[in-house]
Deep mutational scan, measured.
Amino acid sequence: MTFKLIINGKTLKGETTTEAVDAATAEKVLKQYANDNGIDGEWTYDDATKTFTVTE
């Protein structure tokens, strides 16, 4: 399955996707991606669209 991350950061905005077997696995990968890029904020997840959003 494809999961999307929408980034609403102070210095970085955009989106990325990852392939994962489930939402929990995708969340780990996407949170690591955000952490690697210095993004720390509030996370939400929409199961209907398989989209995570992080807002700083």
Rank of each mutant, 00 (worst) to 15 (best):
N8M: 15
G14M: 15
N35R: 13
K31A: 06
N8V: 15
G41S: 02
K28C: 05
A23K: 13
F52L: 02
G38F: 08
G38L: 07
V54Y: 02
T16M: 12
K31N: 04
T51W: 02
E56K: 04
L12Q: 11
E27L: 15
D47L: 07
Q32Y: 05
A23E: 10
A20C: 06
G14E: 12
D40E: 13
E42P: 05
T51L: 04
T2H: 08
A23Y: 15
F52P: 00
A26H: 00
L5I: 03
F3G: 01
E19C: 07
V29H: 08
E56R: 04
I7M: 10
G9P: 03
T2D: 06
W43H: 00
A23R: 12
V54E: 00
T11N: 10
D36W: 06
E19S: 11
N35D: 14
T51A: 05
A24E: 12
L12C: 10
E42H: 10
K50C: 06
V54D: 01
I39C: 04
N37C: 05
A48L: 11
Y45H: 01
K13Q: 12
V21A: 09
M1Q: 13
F3N: 00
V21L: 15
L30G: 01
A34T: 06
N35Q: 13
T2G: 05
T44D: 08
K28D: 07
Y45V: 01
I7R: 02
I39H: 04
F52D: 00
E19A: 12
G38I: 04
Q32P: 02
A24C: 07
E19H: 11
D40R: 12
T11W: 14
I7Y: 14
T17W: 10
E27M: 11
K31V: 08
A34I: 06
T44K: 10
M1N: 10
D22Q: 03
A26S: 02
T2N: 07
K31G: 04
M1A: 10
F3D: 01
L12M: 14
F3I: 02
T16A: 12
L30F: 15
A48K: 13
A23F: 15
A26T: 00
T44W: 08
I7G: 02
A48W: 08
E56I: 15
L5C: 04
G38D: 09
K31W: 11
N8G: 05
T17Q: 15
D36C: 05
I7S: 03
T16K: 15
E56G: 05
T53L: 06
K50H: 13
D40C: 07
K50Q: 12
E27H: 10
T49R: 07
K4H: 09
V29C: 06
A48G: 10
V21T: 10
A48Q: 09
A20T: 05
T55C: 05
I39A: 04
T16C: 06
A20D: 03
Q32H: 07
E15F: 08
A24R: 13
W43R: 00
L30W: 04
E27D: 04
